[in-house]
């Protein structure tokens, strides 16, 4: 299938397996989640990666969120997504990584290797907020 090199496992310690959903169109990330038809469901076990297809049959936010949730997806990687869809999915305790562009295999590799925050995976015009890291010291500089 695709060459996936897992150098880093993004699963939390103690987690047996995790499912990641990636909306795909023409072997790239779907441009708009709201109307995306196909999701690749990637099951990550400690040493294995399994990929299955999920068809998005409904165009409504609630049903789409339910489909993802019922498939056990915990992280969704997608292209552009409008607020009602993003909120509904986040409400199902699914982490959304939006405005991602690129080929499916490259994006998946980047996610597995924790490189998805690199600017080359951002859709044009989208600025991903950097995660603030705590370096110690007192809050508010006191």
């Amino acid at each position: 299938m695709i060459g996936i090199v897992v150098a880093y496992n993004p699963m939390k310690k103690g987690t047996k397996s995790m499912k990641v959903g990636i909306t795909v169109w023409q072997n790239r990330i779907s441009p708009v989640f709201d109307v995306a038809k196909h999701v690749k469901v990637i099951r990550l076990d400690n040493n294995a990666v399994q990929i299955k297809d999920l068809e998005m049959t409904s165009s409504l936010p609630l049903q789409r969120a339910e489909l993802l949730s019922n498939a056990g997806i915990k992280v969704l990687i997608c292209g552009a997504i409008s607020v009602p869809f993003a909120k509904m999915i986040a409400g199902r305790n699914i982490k959304v990584i939006p405005f991602i562009a690129g080929e499916f295999s490259t994006v998946l590799n980047a996610y597995l290797n924790s490189n998805l925050e690199r600017p080359e995976f951002n859709m044009p015009g989208y600025r991903r907020q950097r995660r603030r890291r705590f370096h110690g010291g007192r809050p508010n500089g006191r």
Binding site: W25, S30, P31, V32, V35, K37
Partner: peptide, 19 residues
């Protein structure tokens, strides 16, 4: 400068792009 050379559907992001 961000748009030139990129796939149009990743720039324009319309609901019609895919279908």
């Amino acid at each position: 400068r961000e748009a030139i050379g990129k796939k149009c559907f990743e720039v324009f992001r319309s609901n019609m792009c895919e279908t």
